[in-house]
């Protein structure tokens, strides 16, 4: 990537905050299980594009904040997010050159891993949740990815140099 070294930290922080707010945004009860994993999607994008600028550490911190905001055990989302950030960082070169369809499939795999980790931790902690709470976000997140990646690319390249 041509402007690899330039990391638009402000834009990244902004998009992460917006993602967090979308996660907290009230939804009608029927739609709640289908809320996409905004934070996971945004993190996957930035880690894929700029693995040197933002990686597992940032993902972990975002996860801790999400845990506090959601009232989940401290570390649950942090663990899941840092693991998918690591997988993304490991395969970022392959993922970047994928066509949209394949990239979306890769994101589906990442989101599945994310939900599986959350499910697993819930199981250990003894939290029972309906199955739709796990596969709902997968569907909407995957559908959303192509649009979201375009939007985030727009934000990335519009950022003035050095911001």
């Amino acid at each position: 990537m041509s402007d690899g070294p330039r990391v638009p930290y402000l834009s990244i922080l902004g998009t992460l905050i917006v993602a967090l707010m979308l996660t907290m945004m009230p939804l009608p009860e029927a739609a709640r299980p289908f809320r996409p994993d905004w934070l996971a999607l945004v993190l996957v994008f930035w880690v894929m594009m700029l693995p040197r600028g933002i990686s597992v550490g940032a993902a972990w911190m975002a996860g801790v904040v999400l845990d506090v905001a959601q009232g989940t055990p401290l570390g649950q989302h942090a663990l899941a997010l840092c693991v998918i950030a690591a997988v993304t960082a490991r395969f970022h070169l392959q993922m970047r050159v994928f066509p949209v369809s394949q990239m979306t499939a890769a994101v589906l795999a990442l989101l599945s891993l994310y939900q599986f980790l959350l499910f697993w931790i819930n199981g250990v902690a003894g939290v029972t949740a309906p199955a739709v709470a796990y596969w709902g976000p997968l569907i909407t997140g995957t559908i959303l990815w192509p649009i979201l990646s375009v939007v985030l690319s727009g934000i990335r390249y519009r950022t003035p140099a050095g911001a």
């Binding site: 907290m24 009230p26 709640r32 809320r35 905001a69 959601q70 009232g71 989940t72």
Partner: peptide, 8 residues
């Protein structure tokens, strides 16, 4: 009007 824990 803030949604919290998705599992509870």
């Amino acid at each position: 009007s803030v949604d919290a824990n998705p599992y509870r």
